[in-house]
């Protein structure tokens, strides 16, 4: 069963200019994105800055309203709502079922509130009685491996990693059906990042979390996600089970991304393919396949005809005219 089904999601921002602020163009930040997240599954949405991955997550949480498309969400078994079109007042009771883990553990916690109150806040808002709240806070602290004494202290007393644990405890307070994590470990030191990655793996096992993991770091993504969707200039170019994507990428952009990551092994030095050009501007995407100006495999068709995301084997989808004939390099 799917917890989330995103279908043909679009988010366009108008570019206005002149005295009358007329619309002179559009930034197609998200331009026809579709994917599903099954119960208990972690899907990573990866790509470089400006690819639209954060906009997708903001549309799902309705921090932004989608221009078009459907976001079908199952808050409980047997019930499905479309987050893209739902009126605001019907959205509020659904909020408890989808929670967010933020990137910056320093700015996402209220410095004037005690940790116990921060974690209890969503419980309070949703009418959980005080006595139950206490017990739940202790349970949550245990879940994120923090001492019970933490609840009477303020955020500044904790390190970045501990604050991220507090943020995770708050996100899990109401047993959400879906957790959206936007770069949850990218602000942390390596030694602390490893702790949080392990914690997320634990929570996936213990709670069967369904998670949308938005990240740019392909190394982190390989550890925590079941499937990966790669975005480029507002579109998904490839979706595949994690291991398959890394071993046998089918889209040249995925190959490029993987090749660009420096592996922590000096013996692999120089085994890279050259990376050329810059990420395309979503206000002026190239015609045809948006990746064609940087693609070493591009042919005439790629410059004129936009490829659609099509099925390419078990659980694999790719948006490339030449996907079937190319033999691309993965990491192994």
């Amino acid at each position: 069963m799917n917890v989330l089904e995103v279908e043909d999601l679009r988010k366009h921002f108008p570019i206005r200019a002149g005295l009358l602020r007329r619309e002179v163009g559009r930034v197609r930040a998200v331009d026809g994105v579709s994917f599903q997240i099954a119960a208990g599954e972690t899907l990573a949405l990866v790509g470089e800055s400006g690819c639209g991955k954060t906009t997708v997550s903001r549309c799902i949480l309705r921090a932004q309203r989608a221009t078009s498309g459907a976001i079908r969400f199952a808050p409980e078994a047997g019930r499905v709502v479309d987050l893209a079109s739902l009126p605001k007042r019907e959205l509020r009771p659904l909020r408890r079922h989808m929670q967010m883990i933020f990137q910056d553990p320093y700015s996402s916690l209220n410095p004037r509130m005690m940790v116990g109150d921060i974690i209890a806040e969503p419980l309070k808002v949703n009418g959980v009685p005080a006595a139950e709240r206490q017990a739940r806070v202790l349970e949550l602290l245990e879940l994120v491996q923090m001492p019970p004494g933490a609840r009477t202290r303020f955020p500044h007393a904790f390190s970045g990693g501990q604050r991220q644990r507090i943020g995770i405890a708050r996100a899990l307070a109401l047993n959400p059906r879906l957790v959206v994590a936007d770069e949850p470990v990218s602000a942390l030191d390596v030694s602390v990042q490893a702790q949080i990655i392990n914690l997320l793996l634990d929570l996936q096992d213990r709670l069967g979390l369904s998670m949308l993991f938005v990240a740019h770091d392909l190394s982190v993504v390989r550890h925590v996600s079941d499937r990966v969707a790669v975005m480029y200039v507002g579109r998904i170019v490839e979706v595949a089970p994690t291991d398959a994507l890394y071993r046998t990428p089918r889209h040249p952009y995925t190959e490029t991304l993987l090749a660009a990551v420096p592996a922590p092994d000096p013996a692999r030095r120089g085994r890279r393919i050259a990376v050329t050009g810059e990420v395309a501007d979503p206000a002026h995407p190239p015609p045809g396949c948006a990746f064609h100006p940087r693609c070493p495999h591009a042919v005439e068709r790629c410059r004129t005809e936009r490829p659609e995301l099509t099925e390419a084997g078990a659980g694999r989808w790719v948006s490339c005219h030449r996907a079937a004939e190319l033999d691309l390099m993965g990491v192994r």
Binding site: V190, S191, I197, L218, S219, H223
Partner: peptide, 25 residues
């Protein structure tokens, strides 16, 4: 040694856990 083991790797196995260094800097 601990730092090298804690680094997430693009060569990791699915759902591979990392060795961690206790505490924080």
């Amino acid at each position: 040694r601990a730092l090298l083991r804690a680094v997430p790797s693009i060569l990791a196995a699915p759902r591979q856990r990392l060795s961690t260094i206790g505490g924080a800097v």
